[in-house]
Design a protein around this nucleic acid. Structure first.
Length: 346
RNA sequence: GGACGGGUGGGUGAGUGGCUAAAACCAGCAGACUGUAAAUCUGCCGCUCCUUGCGGGCUACGAAGGUUCGAAUCCUUCCCCGUCCA
């Protein structure tokens, strides 16, 4: 899932996303609540209409902002009190409020508010964050079901989020508690935020072992190209990551041959496409030398083209994974990807 | 011809006796980025040597001399550039 925090995937028009085959994108509750405001979006006919995107949208709850904006918020059992990073105003985000905002936005999948903490984290801190996340999930679910009752047939799905940092038993406990609450889909949160990749995999495996295969299992905020197939092999169905879009803006291109840091002087006269094996419209038309020049001169087309390529590359990885699964070759594909990226920049 | 002002590292531009191989910014080179406060952030950026150290040597603030223990900073002469006056 390409990430479009502010109701846009940075650097791409929706036409491009459609052409690239994106079926679902992410948007963010906290950010859209602050600006332009969920009520405004609701009045404009909902997020899909507002941003002119009729494919699926998943809205993150603001739980990640508990982690990333840690200096601007205070957590209590009631919810999270944020000081706006835009104008300093204070806002209380409760599990109910986060659900309400997402209902107003009208996303297809809403996430419950969770407390995402850094890893590694001490056990007592993890336990209290986990306890709170479960309580919040319960409250969010209750609110959501009441609204559903009250408003009739709601198409939106609500997902719970497993926490527990790097403690296997706490991860299992979290999963069990969420299963008890009963969600149509489950996410694994609070990973890839500091711990080694092997630990990310271990924790993911602990959780997917407990979550039902018939329901969607979503690993939040991952990953690097070479890690994606591994997560799928562990039972993950959905992922989102800012890496393809952010790295693109920072001149890092992902290719079939590894990373290409396109600003490097070595590409100044390179007439080859970014990735000779890529079929995206950027690789079909432009050279490495030209892309490097666009970055060197600070043209925003640089970011546009790079983002287009990277998102194509990521979505193509997913297409290849589906194909590999059909042919029973997922493990082989996964190890090939790891080998390709082991060497570092191409 | 005269009166002022000014010449600093690839660029812009601080510095007006020692803490200055010389601020800051830009350019250049390299790196990081994982539910986006990110078109962001970090490191290097005169040459050279080694035992790679808050190490040694050399060169450097228009040029050449001088004063001083010590000069980008003070003095002298010269050369450039800008503005104004004739």
């Amino acid at each position: 899932m390409p990430v479009g925090t502010q109701a846009t995937v940075k650097g791409l028009r929706n036409e491009a996303l459609e052409e690239l085959g994106a079926e679902i994108i992410l948007a963010n509750t906290y950010h859209l609540y602050l600006r332009p405001g969920h009520e405004l979006v609701h009045r404009m006919g909902g997020l899909h209409k507002f941003m002119s995107w009729d494919r699926a949208i998943l809205t993150d709850s603001g739980g990640f902002q508990v982690f990333s904006l840690s200096e601007l918020r205070k957590i209590a059992d009631e919810g999270v009190r944020f000081r706006s990073h835009i104008d300093g105003s204070e806002h209380l985000l409760t599990p109910e409020k986060a659900a309400e905002i997402q209902l107003a936005l009208g996303s297809d999948i809403a996430m419950v508010l969770d407390e995402c903490i850094e890893t590694p984290a001490p056990r007592d801190k993890t336990e209290s964050a986990l306890k709170r996340t479960t309580q919040w999930a319960r409250r969010a679910r209750k609110y959501f079901l009441e609204q559903q009752e009250c408003l009739g047939d709601l198409k939106q799905w609500q997902f719970g989020i497993v926490q527990g940092a790097t403690f296997a038993d706490l991860r299992r406990e979290s999963a069990h508690q969420l299963l008890e609450i009963d969600f149509p889909g489950y996410a694994v949160g609070g990973l890839a935020v500091g711990e080694p990749h092997e630990v990310t995999c271990e924790m993911t495996a602990e959780v997917t072992a407990l979550l039902p295969k018939e329901r969607l299992r979503y690993l939040m905020g991952v990953g690097k190209p070479e890690q994606i197939a591994e997560y799928v092999a562990l039972g993950i169905d959905m992922m989102d990551c800012v890496l393809p879009t952010r790295a693109a803006r920072h001149a890092c291109l992902y290719t079939s041959q590894g990373r290409v840091l396109i600003k490097n002087a070595r590409y100044a006269q390179d007439q080859n496409p970014v990735d000779p094996n890529c079929t995206c419209s950027v690789c079909c038309r432009y050279s490495r030398a030209y892309l490097r020049h666009l970055f060197a001169t600070g043209e925003f087309t640089a970011a546009v083209l790079a983002t287009h390529h990277n998102v194509h590359f990521y979505l193509d990885i997913m297409r290849q994974i589906r194909e590999a699964i059909e042919f029973g070759k997922l493990a082989k594909f996964s190890s090939e990807m790891r080998a390709r990226y082991a060497a570092g920049p191409a």
